[in-house]
Every structure is written in structure tokens, then in C-alpha cells.
Simulated scan of single mutants.
Amino acid sequence: MATLIHELSGQTWFIVFMAIALFGGVLGAVHHAEVIAHKTGEPYGTLVLAMCITIIEVSLIISLMLTGHDGAEVIARDAVFATIMIVINGVIGLCIFIGGLKHYEMNFRNEGSISALAVLTALATFILIMPIVTVSAPEDKFTRSQLTFVGITCFALYMAFLAFQTVSHRDYYLPKAVDKKTDINFHAQKPSNQKTAISVVLLMLSLVVVVAMAELLSPAIEAGVAAVGAPKTIVGIAIALLVLLPEGYAAVRAARANRLQSSLNLALGSALASVGLSIPAIAAIAIIFHLPLTLGISELNMTLMCLTFFIGALTLVIGRTTRLQGAIHLIIFFEYLFLSLVP
């Protein structure tokens, strides 16, 4: 009995240490991402954190697939769906609600945000719904040729969006106006090239720490899920939450500073990068190594996703938000979490 208590105590301290390291990695990632964003300006700055996290997230998913992790064939599906629900309902909802409490009403460029949501809707439909309605493969899977085509089209669509966002219509993703009295970035001097280069390196290291801690914590999460008898999809949700911590924290900070445009750029950009880059890479690995890959979601999750995109479109089409819209998204997010536990 004493030995068991000692082992449990040791595991508890290990989990606490991992959680502290994870939080430190999140704070470090957000700080260095903000340095880079201040140097490059919008929307390039918000793309940095999204790209880095996506690369490391893909590495994490692929490593789990290659090692034959239990339920490896649905990890990509659960991670992508969880990312969409967390970003649109959780992160954006929290940003709008907290920003609304402090600033009453916030404005943003609806041209860019609604375009990003349209691309995300198409990507999510290609990846998560098409496997259910196609008839060439059994159940909720793609054939080899279908998976190849979907991977190529998702990558092409994301590249098209990236060109739209950063080249042809960059002004759609810039704030409408800058309040020189309240925006500290207006008065702050831009960091030097040396400081920016150091922040790039430290950002990558911080993100590695975040994902490494998330991977180390995943066995404890799996054990907890198994202990309470919850569905295994909760593991994917928990890992997605941990990986999205840096972006979520940075987005909420921007909203509190009345920079909702930056929050939306960061949140939607992270979801687009996660879907548009991760699925092509994972599809390629699955084809090369002949790994099973399940992408189709259930009817319940399909309903939640359709509701999310519909409400998201209503929120972003106006160009201004209040805390009511944030509350709606948060309630949908809590509904998603509850139905994931009790499907």
C-alpha cells in the first residue's frame, strides 16, 4: 500500500512539473511570437506562430501514427475536428466575449475574416464530410486515389488563400484604424534584426517544449480518460487544447488590447494552417507507409460543425462584435465538450 501511494505521489509531481514546463513554454512562445509580429507587421506576424505550431503538431500526429499508437488511424481526424471547434467556438468566442466586456463593441475587417472562414469551411467539408458520402471505400474512409486528390486540393486551396492574404489582398487583414493613444505597438520601436532572429530560434524551442510536454502528458490524459470511462476522442481534444494554448493565449491578449483583427488573424490562420497543411502531410505519410487513416466524422459531430460554421458566418459577416456573439460561440463550445463526453 505504501509503495502504491509513493508511486502515485511520484506521478503527481511529474505531472505538476510537466504542467509548469508547458505553461512556461506557452508564455515563451507568445512573447517571441509578439516580437516577430511587431517586426513583420500584420498579417505576417500572426502567420509565424500558426505555421510553427502546425509543423510540430503534424510531427506529433505522424509519430503517433508510425508507432502504432492505440487508435492511431483516427488521431488526425480527431485533432483536425477538435482544432476547428476549439478555434472557432472556444478561442474566437472567448476573445469576443472578453473583449466585449472590456470594450463594449469591437471592429474588424469582415472581408478578410469571412474569406478565411469560407476557405476553412471548404477544407473541413473535403476532409471530414466527403469520406462519409463517397461510396468507393467502406465506411468513413477514402480510397488511395481519393486521399491523394484530397491532399493535393487542400494544399492548393491553402496556398491560394496564403497568396490572397499576404500578397493580393493583404489590406483585408489589417486593422481598420489604429488608436495611437492605446496601441502600445504604435509607440514601441521595432525590434532589431538580431533580436528578431533570436526570437525566431527561441520561438521554435518554446513550441518544441509545448508539444513535447503535451506528448509526455498524453499518457496521463489517456489514463484519466480510461479511469472515468470517457470516449477516446477526449484524448484528441485534450492534446489539441494543449497544442493550441500559445495561439489561444496570444489571441485573448490581443482582444483585451482591443486588437480583435489580430485575434481573428491568429485564430483563423492557425485553423487553416492546421487543416490545409497537416492533412496533405499526413495523407502522404499514410499512402507511403500504407497506414490506415479514418477521416469521416459522426452525424453528431457533423451537426455541430455545420452549426459552428453557420454561426461563425453570422458573427464575422457584420464586421463588429459584442459579448453576446462571444457567449453564443462559448455555449456551442461547451455543448461540444459535453457531447464528446456523453455522445
Rank of each mutant, 00 (worst) to 15 (best):
A2Y: 07
T3A: 15
L4S: 15
L8C: 09
G10R: 15
W13D: 03
I15L: 14
I15W: 13
A21V: 08
G28V: 00
A29R: 05
V35R: 01
I36E: 02
I36Q: 02
A37H: 04
H38W: 01
K39N: 04
Y44P: 01
T54K: 01
V58L: 09
I61T: 12
I62K: 01
L64S: 14
H69C: 08
G71E: 07
I75D: 01
D78G: 11
M85T: 05
I86C: 10
I92N: 03
L94F: 11
L94N: 03
C95H: 09
L117P: 11
T121C: 10
T121W: 14
A124P: 03
A124V: 02
F126V: 10
T134H: 06
A137F: 03
T148Y: 09
A156I: 12
L157T: 12
F161A: 06
F164C: 08
Q165V: 12
Q189K: 15
Q194C: 03
K195Q: 13
T196D: 01
V200T: 08
M204A: 05
L205D: 02
P219I: 10
E222L: 12
A226C: 09
A238Q: 05
V243A: 13
L244R: 09
A255H: 01
A257I: 02
N258F: 02
R259H: 12
S262P: 00
L264G: 00
S274L: 09
L277D: 00
A281M: 11
I282F: 06
A286M: 02
G296V: 00
I297L: 05
I297T: 04
L300C: 05
I311D: 02
T315M: 13
T322H: 06
L324G: 05
L330V: 01
L330C: 04
F334R: 07
L337H: 06
